[in-house]
Structures are given as C-alpha cells and as structure tokens.
Simulated scan of single mutants.
Amino acid sequence: MSKENKKGKSVLDALPSITMVKPSEPEITSIRKTARTAKNTRNRKKGPKETVELSPDQQELVDIRKKLGLRHQDYAIMLGIGLPRLSSYIYGRTASVPDEVMKTARQLLAENGESSRKLQEKFERPMSEIIAEWETRLGTTSDAEIAGLIGVVTMTINRWRKNETKPDLSALNRYDRIVNLIASNIRQHTGQ
C-alpha cells in the first residue's frame, strides 16, 4: 500500500517524472573502455617480478625441455609428473628436483636429443615459408581451409603468415604430421 500525503496524493505522484535517455554510441564505447581499463588494472600484478635463482638441477630441467622443444604439458607427461609439480621445479618454487625426475629427463634427452635437433633444424625457417610449403602439399591457399584442416583458427594462420607468431616445436611438428597425412590421403584419392 502506498503512503499518502495530507492532500490524498501518493508520495510517488509528488516525485518529478524521469525520462530515460539511451546513451550515445561514443558514450557506450567510453564506458566499455573505462571498464576494460579498470579490469586490466586489477589483473596486473603489483611490483616488479622477482627473479628466482634456480638450482643446477632445476636449470638443467629447463634446458632439457628447451632442447627437446616440448611444451610444458607434454614435458610433464613424459616425465610422469603433473604440470603443477613440473612448474614448481622449473620456476624455483621448490628447493630441488627429485633424483628420479632428473634421471627421466636425462634419459629423454639421450633418447630424443638427435630427433629434436633435426626437428629444430627443419622448422627454424620463418613460419611464412612453412605455411607456403603446407599450401603446396595441400593444394590450397585459403587460410580458412588450412586452419580447418590442422585445427586452428584462421587468425592464427594469418599471424603465422605474417611471421608475427610461431607455435612451439612440438605443436609445429604435430601440425606438420597432420599436413603430411592429409596430403598423403589427397594423393591416394587422386591417384598421383
């Protein structure tokens, strides 16, 4: 029930009327930019990043991963440990690396070092050259088609073509194997 004043009118009747006006597009854009800036400011870490000195084993673990050209996820799987555990070793959050992990890492390097070196040599070219080679093998120059075939978005192919970014060695090798497989299937179906 609404409250009434002495003259019998509702209190709401005494309030001035308000007309809602839709903000203009520049005002909306300004509001969105302000909100984005505030969000980005909150997400930034405060202060300079501290550099942690790694133990010799931790540094060796990092160096082996780089020599093998593996993503952190793949490296953790090959070492038989979880990604958080690997991260604690390579970012210096633990004092040392267990002997069994170091033994496995050294064994991986011994078994895969030569093949990793060959992969690095194969893919040390600019990404635009690798894309051009894939186009030839696949018989297409469409970014969208190449992206669909190897499982990335078209914008990624565009960035690769401009040499703005390049996937890590293990991902690059995986994409190259997909291209080889598709190219082989194309040749079989066309009788070449």
Rank of each mutant, 00 (worst) to 15 (best):
M1A: 11
S2I: 02
K3I: 06
K3L: 15
N5L: 11
G8M: 10
G8H: 07
S17L: 13
S17C: 03
I18V: 15
I18Y: 11
T19K: 15
V21T: 06
K22A: 12
E25D: 13
T29K: 14
I31W: 02
I31G: 02
A35I: 13
R36D: 12
K39E: 09
R42M: 09
N43V: 03
K45I: 04
L54H: 02
S55W: 08
P56E: 08
P56M: 09
Q58R: 10
E60P: 05
E60F: 03
L61K: 08
L61P: 06
V62G: 06
R65E: 03
K66N: 10
K66M: 11
K67L: 14
G69K: 01
R71T: 13
R71H: 07
H72V: 13
Q73S: 12
D74W: 00
A76R: 11
G82A: 11
L83S: 05
L83D: 01
R85A: 14
S87Q: 11
S87Y: 05
I90D: 10
I90T: 13
Y91I: 01
G92R: 10
V97C: 10
E100W: 11
V101N: 04
T104D: 00
A105Y: 03
A110I: 01
E111I: 05
E111H: 07
R117Y: 08
L119Q: 10
Q120W: 01
F123D: 07
S128Y: 02
S128V: 00
A132Q: 11
E133G: 15
W134G: 11
W134E: 10
E135N: 15
R137D: 13
G139A: 12
A144S: 14
E145G: 04
E145K: 15
A147E: 03
L149P: 00
M155P: 02
N158W: 08
R159Q: 12
R159A: 10
W160M: 15
N163R: 06
N163Y: 02
E164G: 07
E164V: 01
K166R: 12
A171Q: 12
L172A: 14
R177G: 02
I178L: 14
V179R: 01
L181C: 01
L181W: 00
I182S: 03
I186M: 07
R187N: 11
H189E: 09
